[in-house]
Amino acid sequence: MGTKGKRITADVFKNILAWAVAMLVLVPMALIIITSFKTDKESLGMSLTLPTQWVFSNFNTVIEKGKLAVSFINSLLYAGFATLLTVFSATMSAYVFSRRRSKGFSILYMYLVLGMVIPINYVSLMKIMQLTHLNNTRLGIILLYAALQTPFTIFLVYGFVSKVPVELDEAAVIDGCSPMSLYFRVVFPLLKPAMVTAGVLCFLNTWNEFIMPLYFLNSTTKWPMTLAIYNFFGQFQRSWNLICADVILTCAPVVILYILAQRFIVGGQTAGAVKG
């Protein structure tokens, strides 16, 4: 076999392997989708056989029984407001830290970014939540999510701000800009792409988060979708058709966001890994 033949064999082998790996990811997803249309009886073991009878009403049943409308709005509220708050405040912080590199500010930046690593002590956080009367409140969860997402968001935006030329600031200052108008009228518009990236990631992470509401939200009417699906799973352990429908409804927003904003998600999550 010549070199060309060898290459073709290698490529065929590569393509087969690539599809085999893809199947590992696709099969579980196909199982979920197929099972979500089955009857109760058929759904006990998830399998790739198509439903004998397509039950589209599973989705309605889940929305009603799982009270998904409320938890959908809750999730939207938590992820939405936490994202707005985090992106707004973290961008301003990143801007200041990127422009001022004195020893004191570098230490403060380090202090904030260390938040990407340090674990949350949920037990004593409960004490803080009780002292501030934020336990079991929507505002509390939003603030907790903002605290969780702030370090990474600052880290991400910091890299972007560094690329906005300082000369721009200087020109604006000569033209008589105040600190506020320098930031909001000159720098802020230039950071929009960074904020979209940070915002999409923040929304995604917050939508998927599960621990904070598990610890700090007792009333079912305040539960986000992740907690709602866990509870639903506990109640309907044998009705995998309904659980699968719930899984699809819970994942739909993030999957749609992923398809629409893939560029931002992948770009944002890989930022910092590659520095050329």
């Binding site: 301003m92 500010f105 938040g115 949350i120 605290a147």
Partner: peptide, 21 residues
Amino acid sequence: YPWYFALISLIIYTVFSVVPG
């Protein structure tokens, strides 16, 4: 580049992540 631009981040992060630790 006033320091108080970083105030909201610093407060939220300190109160809910560092202080509990």
